[in-house]
Amino acid sequence: PKDQAKKEIEKALRNGDEEKAKRLAKKYGISDDDWKELKKRVS
């Protein structure tokens, strides 16, 4: 599910692991808009 994916990506971003977050986003098909939203929430 997308919500689970977003949680994992957000966690990776919080850990400062943007490479992992990007890989997860690609793997789960997270859209650019969702990606920006996640980045905003974390920063």
Rank of each mutant, 00 (worst) to 15 (best):
P1K: 13
P1D: 15
P1C: 12
P1M: 14
P1Q: 14
P1E: 14
P1F: 13
P1R: 12
K2M: 14
K2A: 11
K2D: 13
K2G: 12
D3P: 07
D3L: 10
D3S: 10
D3W: 13
D3C: 05
D3Q: 11
D3T: 11
D3A: 13
Q4A: 13
Q4R: 13
Q4P: 07
Q4H: 12
Q4N: 12
Q4K: 12
Q4T: 11
Q4L: 13
A5P: 05
A5M: 11
A5G: 09
A5C: 06
A5N: 06
A5S: 05
A5H: 12
K6C: 11
K6E: 10
K6F: 15
K6G: 05
K6A: 09
K6R: 13
K7A: 14
K7N: 11
K7Y: 08
K7I: 13
K7S: 12
K7T: 10
K7H: 12
E8Q: 09
E8G: 03
E8C: 11
E8M: 11
E8Y: 05
E8F: 05
E8P: 01
E8L: 11
I9Y: 01
I9G: 00
I9A: 02
E10V: 11
E10W: 04
K11M: 14
K11R: 13
K11G: 08
K11L: 13
K11V: 12
K11I: 14
K11C: 06
K11T: 13
K11Q: 15
A12V: 05
A12D: 02
A12E: 05
A12S: 04
A12F: 06
A12K: 02
L13Y: 02
L13N: 00
L13P: 00
L13M: 04
L13E: 00
L13W: 02
L13R: 00
L13H: 00
R14Y: 05
R14P: 00
R14C: 08
R14E: 05
R14L: 11
N15R: 09
N15E: 15
N15A: 13
N15T: 10
N15D: 15
N15C: 11
G16S: 03
G16P: 01
G16M: 04
G16E: 03
G16D: 04
G16I: 01
G16A: 04
D17M: 07
D17Q: 09
D17E: 10
D17T: 02
D17N: 09
E18P: 05
E18T: 10
E18I: 13
E18C: 08
E18S: 06
E18N: 08
E19R: 09
E19A: 11
E19S: 08
E19T: 07
E19I: 08
E19M: 07
K20V: 09
K20A: 14
K20F: 13
K20P: 01
K20Q: 13
K20Y: 14
A21V: 02
A21S: 03
A21E: 00
A21Q: 00
A21T: 00
A21C: 01
A21H: 00
A21M: 01
A21Y: 00
K22H: 09
K22T: 06
K22N: 05
K22D: 04
K22E: 10
K22C: 10
K22P: 00
K22F: 04
R23L: 13
R23W: 08
R23S: 12
R23K: 13
R23N: 11
R23Y: 11
R23T: 10
L24R: 01
L24F: 02
L24D: 02
L24M: 05
L24E: 02
A25Y: 02
A25P: 00
A25W: 02
A25R: 06
K26F: 06
K26M: 10
K26A: 12
K26E: 15
K26H: 10
K26N: 12
K27W: 10
K27S: 08
K27Y: 15
K27G: 04
K27F: 13
K27T: 06
Y28D: 02
Y28H: 12
Y28N: 07
Y28G: 03
Y28R: 02
Y28E: 05
Y28I: 07
G29Y: 04
G29S: 07
G29M: 08
G29Q: 11
G29F: 05
G29T: 03
I30G: 00
I30W: 09
I30C: 04
I30P: 00
I30H: 01
S31F: 02
S31N: 08
S31L: 04
S31A: 05
S31P: 05
S31V: 03
S31C: 03
S31G: 06
S31R: 02
D32G: 06
D32S: 07
D32Y: 13
D32H: 06
D32W: 14
D32K: 05
D32P: 07
D33Y: 06
D33K: 09
D33W: 06
D33F: 07
D33S: 10
D34Q: 08
D34M: 07
D34Y: 04
D34S: 03
D34V: 08
D34H: 03
W35L: 15
W35P: 00
W35M: 13
W35H: 01
W35A: 01
K36M: 13
K36L: 15
K36F: 14
K36S: 09
E37K: 07
E37R: 06
E37H: 04
E37F: 04
E37S: 05
L38Q: 02
L38C: 05
L38I: 15
L38N: 01
L38H: 02
L38P: 01
K39I: 15
K39A: 08
K39C: 06
K40Y: 06
K40L: 07
K40I: 08
K40V: 08
K40N: 14
K40D: 15
K40E: 15
K40C: 09
K40F: 07
R41A: 13
R41H: 10
R41W: 04
R41L: 14
R41V: 10
R41P: 03
R41D: 06
R41C: 06
V42C: 06
V42H: 05
V42E: 03
V42S: 07
V42W: 03
S43L: 14
S43H: 13
S43P: 06
S43K: 12
S43D: 14
S43N: 12
S43Y: 09
